[in-house]
Design a protein around this nucleic acid. Structure first.
Lengths: 126, 126
DNA sequence: GTAGTCAGATTACTAATGTAATCGAATAGG
DNA sequence: CCTATTCGATTACATTAGTAATCTGACTAC
């Protein structure tokens, strides 16, 4: 349960690239992000530098061109972020959020089937 | 599906007060928040004013002391916020998030029971 | 070896957010 | 009536985030 620094919205985009594949050079990250955003290369570079500064991303400085890699797993960051989110928006009641989302239309029948299976297995592991 | 303005973290605290009970005077909101935060009255007042400015909170200016009330329901705001959250953190995959949270330890047996019930009823309503 | 290029470092500027304090008009007490 | 309080309006100032541009030293192509 480390204390993961806050990752801003734009920074998440960068992290998503690095979680998908790493280490990457700044240019590789830039190339990747330019498929989905219209950020200038310098902007992306700034985001990378900020993530390094926040200790969320590491750098290999042994090569002439640095490469970057995440210091936390995606799962860790998702959990940390979601925890603070649920606390803020749902007063910490995870269940309220789950209920709201299950009631929405955004799940396919297969999703539902899968969720039910997970729920069924859940109590036993305790 | 109105376009709800962004509500910042601190502003959410204020909104939570108003959703709990409204309309309230600024002083009532302040009193309420001082039980859980250490914000100065002026700070809370600023937050209220900003929410009014953003058109998330309404004001009755007919009395000498104004009263404030939410312009959106908590449910609406939660959904809006969660949607953008899920998109950012889970790439829009609601199911991934649900799975992650169901797998965590934060649910009681009763919660699980309730969720299962909701899931069971879910497909039929379509 | 001189000029252009490229990566990393540094600097820039705006908007939003966190966190208040000050100002001014109305009010309430004495 | 004059003063102190109170509330709303206005202003303030730091930090983070969004979005880049400039500067500088090394490398590359003439």
């Amino acid at each position: 349960m480390k204390n993961i620094p806050n990752i801003s919205e734009s920074e998440w985009e960068v992290m998503n690239i690095l979680w998908h594949k790493s280490p990457l050079t700044a240019n590789e990250v830039i190339a990747s992000l330019q498929e989905t955003t219209d950020w200038k290369p310098k902007t992306i570079r700034t985001l990378l530098d900020r993530l390094v500064h926040k200790n969320v991303v590491g750098v290999n400085r042994n090569q002439k061109v640095y490469t970057f890699y995440p210091l936390y797993s995606q799962d860790e960051c998702q959990r940390a972020e979601t925890e603070s989110f649920v606390k803020r928006i749902y007063g910490g009641a995870v269940k309220s959020m789950l209920v709201q989302f299950i009631e929405e239309e955004s799940l396919t029948d297969d999703d539902i089937k899968e969720l039910r299976k997970i729920l069924d297995e859940k109590p036993k592991e305790k």
